[in-house]
Every structure is written in C-alpha cells, then in structure tokens.
C-alpha cells in the first residue's frame, strides 16, 4: 500500500469517520425486535445455558468462550458483508471516489466488526459470571481470567475480521465471502475446542499458563494483529476493488454484447429510415 503523508491525527479521524458510518448503518439495518432476539439467543445459549451445564473449571470455560470462541464466531459472521456488500448494494464506487485513504477505509471497516464482536463477547462474559454466581459455581477472581477476555477479545477478533475483509474484497458476492470465511471460523473453533478434549492435566496446565501470563498472551496477539494488518494494507488497493466489481471476463462480455446490440440497433434504425 502506498502510505500517504497524512498525520496520525488525520488518519485516526478518517478511520473514525468510516467506523461511525459502519456502526450507524449496521445498527439501522435491524429493528429492535431483531436486535433483542439476537442478543437473547447469544446471551441465552453462550452466557447462561452453557456455563450452567458445564463441568470442570467452569470459570476458565467462560473466559475462553468470551476471549476466543465468541470473538472469532461473531467477527466471522458479520465481516463477509464489509466490501462485497457495498459492491452488491452499489455504494462501493462512490465510497472509493472519496478522498478517504485506503488505510482508513480498510481499518475503519474492520474495526466496526471488531467492536461488534467485542460487545457481544462482553455481554456473554458478564452473563456467564452472573450465571456462575447464581448457580453457586466457584468463581475464581484472578487478574488473568478477568483481564484476558476483556482485553484479548478484540485482539482475537481482529485477525479474523482482517482476513475476512480481504476475502470480502476478492469474493464475487457476500454469500461466497461468507462461505469461505465460515471455513476459517470453523477451523479456529475446532482448534480451540481440542483444549477441552485433551487430558484434564494438560488442560489445566495450559489454562494456568495462559492465566499466569496475560501480558505475554496480549503481546503475542498484538504482534499477530500487527502482522495481519501490515500484510492487508500492503495488498489493499482501490483499483483491485473496482476490478473485482467489473472483472476482465465481464468487460470482454460487455464488449461482445455491446457489438451485438449495436449492430442490431443500427440495422433497425436503417430499416426504419428506409420505411
């Protein structure tokens, strides 16, 4: 990506312009009933039902759910629309014609999905703790267990949203983007789930190691996020988005179709003239 000479403040302002628009548009897209049913289902299943019925280190289970599983699942669910949706709704070209930088467009859109995933994960985390308290499970108050979900959730959601945005740029439609992203999400969730099928000793050892070194975990996630963003910004191009909207095959097709129609139209005009 060609880096512009914009100051950091200007870049942040541009990102916030895109972020605000995305969140507002996304919020308006659903009515109150739809919002409530989504929140009720997510919190009900992941924040109440699963913690209430879980066994073993239930506190760690809730923390992993909020820090990893939900950010991945929620970000993966909503990211497919980010560029492919703009293209389908016919708003992409006008957006690209604005002076907003490539960086602002990409980061603003990715962050909007990260915010969604984070809010969802935190709602479930809060509901999970309340459920544990209500069902008289033992709640361990360790910094790691409380800080990791809050701070790690957005950092875990970011790479998924980032990769999903790149897929959304290249995909022909929202549906095809969604299908590809689903495989990534599924693979990650299966990867995390293996933690719950390994022997109890290994499980405890891993959880305690993560719990004891939250800063190291966050630092690793930050590095991964930075690398993902760096690669994405280097590959993100306005022209690529435009070309994806009008592929070479389509352009050729248009030219052939144009020739056919034009020949027909002129023959009709000549016939009408003679008549």
């Amino acid at each position: 990506m060609k880096l512009t000479d914009k100051t950091g403040a200007k870049a942040v302002e541009e990102i916030s312009i895109v972020l605000r628009k995305e969140l507002k548009e996304w919020y308006n897209a659903q009515d109150t009933r739809s919002w409530l049913s989504q929140a009720f289902l997510t919190v009900g299943i992941f924040g109440i039902l699963m913690p209430a019925t879980a066994k073993g280190d239930v506190m760690a289970f809730v923390a992993i759910l909020a820090a990893v599983v939900l950010p991945v699942a929620l970000a993966g669910t909503v990211i497919s629309d980010v560029f492919a949706g703009e293209r389908e709704r016919g708003t992409l070209e006008t957006l690209l014609a604005t002076p907003l930088s490539d960086r602002a467009l990409f980061v603003g859109k990715v962050l909007s999905r990260v915010v969604y995933a984070w809010v969802g994960a935190m709602m479930v985390f809060a509901a999970g703790i309340i459920t544990l308290w209500a069902t008289k499970h033992r709640i361990r108050f360790s910094t790691g267990l409380f800080a990791l979900p809050v701070l790690a959730a957005p950092l875990v959601a970011f790479p998924i949203a980032d990769i999903g945005a790149i897929i959304s740029i290249r995909a022909k439609s929202v549906r095809s983007a969604h299908q590809i992203i689903s495989y990534f999400v599924l693979a990650l969730i299966i990867g995390v789930s293996t933690l719950f099928v390994v022997p109890r000793d290994w499980q405890n050892a891993t959880l305690h190691a993560l719990e004891r070194a939250p800063l190291l975990v966050l630092l690793c996630l930050l590095v991964v996020d930075y690398l993902c963003l760096w690669v994405s910004l280097r590959t993100f191009r306005r022209s690529r988005l435009i070309l994806a909207a009008c592929s070479t095959v389509q352009t050729k097709g248009n030219a052939v179709e144009f020739d056919r129609r034009e020949t027909q139209r002129r023959e009709d005009a000549k016939a009408a003239k003679k008549y």
Binding site: I17, K24, N28, A29, T91, E93, T94, L95, P99, L100
Partner: peptide, 22 residues
C-alpha cells in the same frame, strides 16, 4: 447508481460524505 446508504437517513448520508470530503 446513486451510491447512497439506504440504511442511513438522507441527512446521515450527507453528513458522512461531508466528513469524508473534509
């Protein structure tokens, strides 16, 4: 294609583009 965000109001559309165009 008008390229407007149908899930935003007319005012919000213009407000967003005004900010984008500085």
């Amino acid at each position: 294609q008008p390229g407007l965000y149908t899930r935003l109001s007319a005012y919000d559309n213009l407000d967003f583009f005004a900010a984008a165009y500085r």
